[in-house]
Amino acid sequence: MSSNSSYSVPLVFNAVEIMTPFLLAGIGGLFTELAGMLNIALEGLMLAGAFFSIVFAAATGNLFLGIAMGVLSSMLLALLFGTITLKLRANVFITGLATNLFASGFTVVLAYQLFHTKGVIQFQNIPKLPVLVVPDFLQRIPILGDILFGHNIIVYLTWALVLLSAIVIYRTPFGLRLRGTGINADTIVSLGLSPQKYQLAGILISGFTCGLAGAMLTIRLAAFVPEITSGRGWIALVAIYLGNKTPFGIAVASFVFGLTESFSNYAQGAIKIPSDFILALPYVITVAAMILYAVWRHSRATR
């Protein structure tokens, strides 16, 4: 019993850490999704945030300036993506691909230009992300204390953002109009409002959260690896659908992903299975979850 929980607590603790980038990207992507746009650019936006945050953090020695620049660059890329899609009326899917491709090409070209390598770039002078300190009695809550506390501040910022996004989406005029845009843009036009404005806002919000997600990836490692996002943006998109397009649903879906990845990290060290299979596990589990969900939904609909 006790040995069980001594394994499972760090497993869940790591899951909470790992899920954060998924959750951030998913929450941002939710705003575009609700505005009626498929956002496959999450991956590229995250990558831009990852690269520029660490480069600026290293250059200035200031962590927060670095993160801010990462977020800003991700938002700028989102602005490019949004402007071309909405103003030039381009296909959102292909401009999303373009954004991913641009980000992956641009980060490598720039890395090569600045650091003369296309491989892993280690940074020495990156400060650690501050960890939230909580009063001792909270930390000592059995199990939960160990799981919930001791993460870096981006984790808690993310939780706050989930809450905030739920409030914005369901309680404010902006949220009402954003959802209206996604359901029936014609209605929004007939009221003299501009659907594009809400869609662009959604895209920019996804740029913001993806920038933060990317920053967390590189800053935690104190290194930049080409394609460091490795499909996280796509998984975040899946989380939006599995989470039924609600902030809390996305949080649950992200947690499941976090748990599978955390488990495969653990299994990699402990069990003798080829690492490629373990890396494939999150995808297999996700696809299985997705199909089971579809079967369940289907059987309910036809009952």
Partner: peptide, 14 residues
């Protein structure tokens, strides 16, 4: 020009 998922009130004040 209505949004079926919204309430009457939400549609009116939108």
């Amino acid at each position: 020009k209505l949004i079926p998922d919204f309430t009457v009130a939400e549609n009116v004040v939108l």
